[in-house]
């Protein structure tokens, strides 16, 4: 093995998909948003809820990105909103991964009627258009951020269940799984030791690809008034509020850009992870 400098080794540690300019930019943007999630409110120049600035001040006058119809600083609200949108998207992805993986594991490992029951239910949920089902659920539950996450959860777990089930079906027939069972592994131990680790890679890739979609779905629900309630700084509801003031372009463009960059950058990271973990897809 040849010796490499620490910089070169660090470079090799980055997934190949992220090593090109576009991927690197996406990675940095995503990283920046994650940092903003953590420290956003601390670096915000104004209180995101305070209504003490001039109303509809364009970008650059009173504040960096201007102010909204109630005299709140747009920049501070976008920074504070990162925690709401990205944070909840992460929570949503984690929950759907957990629920979907668990159901997929059970269906794939036990097969027969367990598989039939779980997968038919999954098909049932997947048969509905995602956004419509989420909207109906959110509307039925009542408008709140918590209910929006719950509604999004209802539509986003099935894909994990399907992917994990198909991986488990492939793994289950392996000789090493049978060897484990012959060595007296219980079903739980067999799943934990021989099956679960094999499902992790593809599931994490799916999850990272899903973060952008989840952010989009949550801000979409908020945009429709089914998610965040005023005055919570949420990007979707900020865009929604901008609709009635179409001439004040900054109100909609900046929160929109925030959503766009989050969705694109996390999708790029998901792509890169997939390329890195799946040798079948050649890195572009």
């Amino acid at each position: 093995m040849t010796r490499r400098s620490p910089t070169a080794r660090l470079w090799r540690a980055i997934p190949p998909g992220l090593r090109q300019p576009l991927g690197l930019a996406a990675g940095l943007i995503a990283l920046a948003w994650l940092v903003i999630c953590l420290i956003g409110p601390a670096i915000a120049p104004f209180d995101p809820l305070a209504q003490d600035l001039p109303r509809f001040s364009p970008p650059g006058e009173v504040s960096f990105l201007g102010t909204d119809e109630l005299g709140r600083d747009l920049f501070s609200r976008i920074l504070a909103g990162a925690r709401v949108t990205i944070g909840l998207a992460l929570v949503l992805v984690c929950l759907s991964m957990l629920i979907g993986s668990l159901l997929g594991l059970l269906a794939g490992f036990f097969g027969r009627w367990v598989d039939e029951a779980i997968m038919r239910f999954t098909d049932l949920v997947m048969a509905f258009p995602t956004v419509i089902l989420a909207m109906v659920t959110a509307a039925a539950l009542g408008a709140s951020l918590f209910n929006a996450v719950l509604a999004a959860l209802v539509v986003s777990w099935p894909q994990y269940a399907r992917v994990v089930r198909s991986i488990v079906l492939g793994l289950r027939g392996n000789d090493f799984v049978w060897s484990g069972r012959l060595l007296g592994f219980s079903a739980v131990r067999s799943i934990r030791v021989d099956i679960l680790p094999g499902t992790m890679g593809p599931t994490l890739v799916l999850a990272s690809l899903d973060i952008g979609t989840a952010a989009l779905l949550l801000s979409g629900l908020s945009f429709l008034g089914l998610g965040a309630r005023p005055p919570t700084p949420e990007w979707g509801s900020m865009v929604s509020a901008a609709v009635s003031h179409f001439d004040k372009w900054w109100l909609g463009v900046f929160p929109g850009l925030a959503i766009l960059t989050v969705v694109i950058s996390f999708n790029f990271i998901g792509d890169a992870l997939r390329d890195a973990l799946d040798p079948g897809v050649a890195p572009r």
Partner: peptide
């Protein structure tokens, strides 16, 4: 019955590759 053990045919899959 665990007194009956088996070595499988395919060396590629008889051991868990992740352990």
């Amino acid at each position: 019955q665990t007194g009956i053990q088996m070595v499988f045919q395919d060396p590629g899959s008889s051991l868990n590759p992740r352990r």
